[in-house]
Computed example of a mutant assay.
Amino acid sequence: MERRLDPAVPGRGAQSGSVPDRFGLAQREQDGDWRDYMEILDGPPVKLRTTVTEEHPKTILTFNQSPDIGFDRSINAYRGCEHGCIYCFARPTHAFHDLSPGLDFETRLFAKPNAAQLLCETLARPRYKPKPIAMGTNTDPYQPIEGRYRITRSLLEVCLATRHPVTITTKSDRVLKDLDLLTELARLDLIAVAISVTTLDTRLSGLLEPRAPAPGKRLAALKSLVEAKVPAHCSIAPIIPAITDEFMEDIVSRIGAIGVRSVGWIPLRLPHEVAPLFREWLSVHFPDRGDKVMAIVRSMRGGRDNDPDFFTRMKPSGVWADLFRARFRIAKKRAGIEMNRFQLDIGKFVTPSLDGQLQLL
């Protein structure tokens, strides 16, 4: 049964919760349960509750061989993300578990409380070779439930104890809760933190990223990281044509003024179910320009809603893409930002003593 509220689901990014048919998954049929009759009579619940299920995987480090991304291993402490960013490219991963990439992705979350122990076991393997671990590549490591589970913090504690390099990508100023660990990691050249800023308009952010911290808080977090000498990167991501691209220059100027020395931009990606979810979002919040937005997106993606191919998926083409690149290059020059990448030290790694390390967790 599809869950939908018209014209908008308050406090959520997605506007519906239908299960996709990409894997041949049937929609849930009414089974005579009292909840089905309740929804028929009263409609779907006005306020969707967030639930968290603890899971205990056998491994925590995911390796990849993608030729166009800058890391070969990553950790995701959580599945699903309460931030509810409508454009999130990770939404389709929920479909693997017979859950909706729409509302389920932001309301039915999964936490991995044994993540730090699993990381210790992986790092202790005789053949393990260190390279930076990327955190936040799929779902945000500092989404609201981190305040309760503190899984990300426990992973950083392992990285500090073993002198293992790590990178963090987040939309949350909650990262400052771990500033004590970040400063120690930074002192050893073991950490870089990227904070994503999509817009400077608080109201627009509330529609795009309904449960993520406001843009001002993210800029303040970047400033705090710079002051603490933690390598900080600002990711203007994603650039949504005719919706957020107008803020590009102002964001670059603002982060340059607070001392951020690394910045990049990422174009909107709409893989699998994200495309129809985003179209639906446009129809609710920007019905006057939805067609224009998608026309520009397709012009940068070879006539498609999304380009999944290696190398080109991160590099849109066409007149609009060239315009964004030129604007970004000029804004970056005006802000005096030249550095693009941070080099982390892999030479300090110490293989953990498994018994002793586990006693610390």
Rank of each mutant, 00 (worst) to 15 (best):
Ala134Asp: 07
Glu106Cys: 06
Glu121Trp: 13
Arg127Pro: 00
Val166Asn: 01
Glu157Gln: 15
Pro126Ile: 14
Pro144Asp: 12
Ala192Arg: 01
Leu190Ala: 03
Glu157Tyr: 07
Ala134Lys: 13
Lys129Met: 15
Thr183Cys: 05
Val158His: 00
Arg127Trp: 13
Leu176Tyr: 04
Asp173Thr: 07
Ala134Ile: 11
Leu119Asn: 03
Thr107Lys: 05
Thr162Asp: 04
Ile191Tyr: 07
Ile151Thr: 11
Leu109Thr: 08
Glu184Ile: 01
Gln117Thr: 14
Ile168Met: 14
Gln117Phe: 06
Ala111Ser: 12
Leu185Ser: 00
Pro126Lys: 15
Thr137Tyr: 13
Glu106Gln: 03
Asp180Ala: 11
Pro144Met: 12
Leu188Arg: 14
Arg187Pro: 01
Leu109Gln: 07
Ala111Ile: 08
Thr107Tyr: 08
Thr167Lys: 05
Pro165Leu: 08
Ala111Gly: 07
Arg150Cys: 10
Arg148His: 12
Thr137His: 12
Tyr149Met: 05
Lys131Tyr: 12
Glu184His: 10
Ala124Glu: 13
Met135Lys: 08
Phe105Arg: 03
Glu106Leu: 03
Gly136Ser: 10
Cys120Asp: 10
Leu155Thr: 03
Leu185Gln: 01
Thr137Ala: 11
Arg174Ala: 15
Ala192Trp: 01
Leu188Lys: 11
Pro132Asn: 11
Tyr142Met: 02
Leu155Val: 14
Ala134Ser: 15
Asp180Gly: 08
Cys159His: 04
Thr183Asn: 00
Leu160Lys: 00
Leu181Gln: 01
Thr162Tyr: 03
